[in-house]
Nucleic acid binder design. Sequence first.
DNA 1: CGACGCGTTGATGAGATTCAACATGTGTGG
DNA 2: CCACACATGTTGAATCTCATCAACGCGTCG
Lengths: 241, 241
Amino acid sequence: MTKRIPLTLDSVRCSTCGLGQFCLPVGMAAEDAGRMDELVQQRVRLARGESLFRFEDGLDAVYGIRFGTLKTYLELADGRQQITGFHLPGEIVGLDGLGRNSHASTAIALEDSEVCVIPVRDLSSLANHLPSLQRQLMRLMSRKIEQDQQMLLSLGTMRAEERLAVFLVSLSERLAARGYSSSAFVLRMSREEIGNFLGLTLETVSRLFSRFAKSGVLRIQQKQVEIVDMAALRRLAGPHC
Amino acid sequence: MTKRIPLTLDSVRCSTCGLGQFCLPVGMAAEDAGRMDELVQQRVRLARGESLFRFEDGLDAVYGIRFGTLKTYLELADGRQQITGFHLPGEIVGLDGLGRNSHASTAIALEDSEVCVIPVRDLSSLANHLPSLQRQLMRLMSRKIEQDQQMLLSLGTMRAEERLAVFLVSLSERLAARGYSSSAFVLRMSREEIGNFLGLTLETVSRLFSRFAKSGVLRIQQKQVEIVDMAALRRLAGPHC
DNA sequence: CGACGCGTTGATGAGATTCAACATGTGTGG
DNA sequence: CCACACATGTTGAATCTCATCAACGCGTCG
């Protein structure tokens, strides 16, 4: 089960967290960012495969990822699923439910992970006193819209090879922004999950990886990826990257 | 060119507008909704084909549609476009730019249309004093996220026939909610635009319309659509509708 | 060890795109 | 108000991309 971890006085807080530059306090003055500390009173530890929240659960909190990787997805009545995002440390998940008072998606940990609990009650009331927080929330949501629309563009207009290339470039950039290597990383998600996210089958994804490897763009060993020729990968990705 | 129309004291205002139930004031107490009236000081008239804003334009305002239909789309460096939404009266367009201070998409009128100008400066400052407006903005943005994610699901998992059926059912429902007929309406967008939105070619859309007509689900005369057998259409749409 | 999850690879086929020709509608200028 | 041009829509045939079905390899875990 999920473990709830209460924070003590000497725990790392938002104001001292290295992820601040990606997370909720982005772009807030130090003084305002300090107020975030009141907000986060506990964390949740998730084992791989555990869910953080499920579609239509009550929306008690949104969550900032401290470490680990999550996926969020929608589900159809007939069981078909669509993954709507893979989420890295510093990202906030659950925002898509803010307007309806219940979660609009399901979130699952792809590896052992830890998230900061941000209770929506406290978040809204603090936001009412803190315009900079308000703006930041807006910014996060509108960025999520942009991001989803970029995916629409990808699913709507791009072919398989292009989609996978864009996926890899963008993952690489997000990891690099967080201080990880941009050229060598571990895919926390399965071929099937990548395929689902990109609107492809797992076989197609596997074949494309093989093809990229054969042409010398990537080196692949199971989930371990190394981008050998970033320029070529960007070329495959088309005019996005 | 776009015509700017200043509002006079006796113009219809938010508090007296019939679209209130879809637009910005949704779910706000009458007293708070009254404050909206200060916000909208002018409207803009658009001829068919005119743009309301373009990608990366400065974000001076967001817009509530008073009458007409707009499309919003993204554009790639190589000219490929992806339509991200068709917008009906009562909907707010431009919210996707709120986080970046510039527009994240381009908006074009599909027919002669009129929109209410909502200056973002005034909107933010009013929102800071009016928690109910703040919440409404959140709600609108998170609904847009949900909507885009629904489209991701559609593009990622559904086949052509299903997508078009879902499109028609959802358009029908949105029109019905606005007091129009749910079974007979005019498509303001071309086959090409529908195809682009759904990730299909215009030929495929045309063929599907013909097939739906032949099987007795629809009657089609150019842009005039009549849904003859809604139950069958919902069946084609799969487990969404 | 055997079972199971995950990934790879090949053969085949379906669904959608592309190319092309034609039909119909719409708008403009004479 | 008609004629012509151009945009939009329809339909057919060939083609291609990707999905499906299937077999098999590898690694992990009870």
